Amino acid sequence: SAVVMEEGSPGEVPVLVEPPGLEDVEAALGMDRRTDAYSRSSSVSSQEEKSLHAEELVGRGIPIERVVSSEGGRPSVDLSFQPSQPLSKSSSSPELQTLQDILGDPGDKADVGRLSPEVKARSQSGTLDGESAAWSASGEDSRGQPEGPLPSSSPRSPSGLRPRGYTISDSAPSRRGKRVERDALKSRATASNAEKVPGINPSFVFLQLYHSPFFGDESNKPILLPNESQSFERSVQLLDQIPSYDTHKIAVLYVGEGQSNSELAILSNEHGSYRYTEFLTGLGRLIELKDCQPDKVYLGGLDVCGEDGQFTYCWHDDIMQAVFHIATLMPTKDVDKHRCDKKRHLGNDFVSIVYNDSGEDFKLGTIKGQFNFVHVIVTPLDYECNLVSLQCRKDMEGLVDTSVAKIVSDRNLPFVARQMALHANMASQVHHSRSNPTDIYPSKWIARLRHIKRLRQRICEEAAYSNPSLPLVHPPSHSKAPAQTPAEPTPGYEVGQRKRLISSVEDFTEFV
């Protein structure tokens, strides 16, 4: 048969007729292969192709491409040299491709048809291009793949890379869960390890502090508590009631339409708007009261037996805890006409967050109470924005700035309102402590230090009264110190430094 060459192609190359033996071998191979691939376009007849790359030819070592076609129900084999250009295909004639002069020997084609199974398996396991790669995943090629499931790999992101949580363990979102698992493993320790309690022994800490320079003076030496005195035992138990972190309780009120001037209507609300609910979820963490331990979680007086509701929101960081007394989460009882059960919590909070959804101005004093010092007013606006402002009593104007209003988005509203309420509550605590000038409020841990110092002074006084020969370590507060001759004046800087060093040991009130 003659071949018409394309323009620009090399000279004529004689194409030899395939021997009958080659056709029989390739026909047997075509019957084993699956003929249901995917359909081509209507211009080209339905056909199945599979590209198999052999590394070497037997005796020649030339890479070839073998295409199996099922045109007219008769499979045909096409061998081509890759750099050459194939002729145009037609549905009426068999596929013809040019070969190099080196394939002119018909014996070479017979060798190609009689490829060993080793070469076929190696060509099938190679990388296939384009559409033949999808075909190689079918059941027909499963014989050339190794048996057994593939090893499982770690989760992959859409980009093909490992997620960040699997790369950096410290930033993994499941870090707290692993800590819980470690605690569970520790709890399952053997009885021999049960006595080993991690941490620092208080006796060891005391020993280090006792021999430090801070205890060089007799006034700073630790003293032993009497065991037989019940009054001192009660004082030590009272110390446990003062937490070592700051605590805040903040009221949250929802004002519906037409309720801006009605205290009873505001306290009777059992739910609010959708934006109000989203605002609550951002204030803190939802907790169930019956599962809380009052000595570990500050509840601000809420009952854990269901008297004040089942849930509330709280927030904490390293040095403070805040609980929100939310009116809509507290039960509304029919027998309580004046809502006294709610007001006994909300009316005693220094700061209230008022979500004013009424469309009218909310005035300070609508919720009557002796300790309502500051109101954080949240007014929802259009386009997911809110107006946040402050209202306070006249005696609080020096501590709280009420002249600045803020426009905040719904997303950042819980954070801004919480921070403003916490700052206002700190100012309210300082303002409330002014009624007792001898006990200015600095912080909870300073209050613990003052309680310890008062307890020490009482013990020293009782020891001096029981044994008059012992001198008083600290003179009583009601006694007057003996007159001392004025010492020589020293520079102001040295006096300030000495006073600062003494105050650092005794108390921190002056620095606050």
Rank of each mutant, 00 (worst) to 15 (best):
R285L: 06
V335G: 14
A251K: 04
I223L: 11
P468W: 15
R456N: 14
F373R: 07
S229V: 10
K337M: 13
I242Y: 07
D439F: 08
S479R: 10
I502Q: 15
K453T: 15
N356V: 01
S244K: 08
F311W: 08
T281Q: 14
G359H: 07
K444F: 06
K368L: 08
V335A: 12
R418I: 04
F362A: 02
K342G: 05
C305E: 14
A322C: 14
G309C: 13
D410S: 01
Q497P: 14
C385T: 11
D382N: 04
D240K: 04
G301D: 13
S352Q: 05
D439N: 11
L399K: 04
E228C: 07
S435A: 14
G301E: 10
S229E: 12
K368N: 15
A427W: 06
T281K: 10
V351N: 00
P331S: 06
S504H: 10
E270I: 05
P489C: 10
R275K: 02
I367W: 06
S428G: 04
H316V: 15
V354A: 01
S435E: 14
D401I: 03
G284A: 05
A424N: 03
A322R: 01
L225P: 10
P243S: 06
S273V: 00
G301A: 12
Q419R: 01
R339Q: 14
L283M: 03
Q419P: 01
S358A: 05
Y355H: 00
C292R: 12
Q241S: 12
T328G: 02
S469G: 14
N412Y: 05
K249E: 15
V430N: 03
F371I: 05
T509M: 06
K342N: 05
A463K: 07
V335R: 11
F508D: 15
E257T: 08
L280H: 02
N425I: 03
K337I: 10
W315F: 09
K363R: 10
S244V: 12
I502D: 15
D217A: 08
I223H: 07
Y441G: 14
C460A: 11
Q429E: 06
A421S: 05
I367H: 03
D382M: 05
R411F: 06
L413C: 15
Y465R: 12
I407V: 09
I242E: 12
A322D: 03
V335C: 12
Q457P: 12
H451Q: 14
H345N: 08
L264Q: 14
I250E: 01
D439Y: 12
H271E: 10
R500D: 14
D361P: 09
D361V: 07
G496W: 06
D357P: 00
H478D: 15
L346N: 05
D246S: 07
V323R: 08
L267Q: 03
L239E: 13
R448F: 06
A427N: 03
A322Y: 06
D318F: 04
K444R: 08
M420C: 06
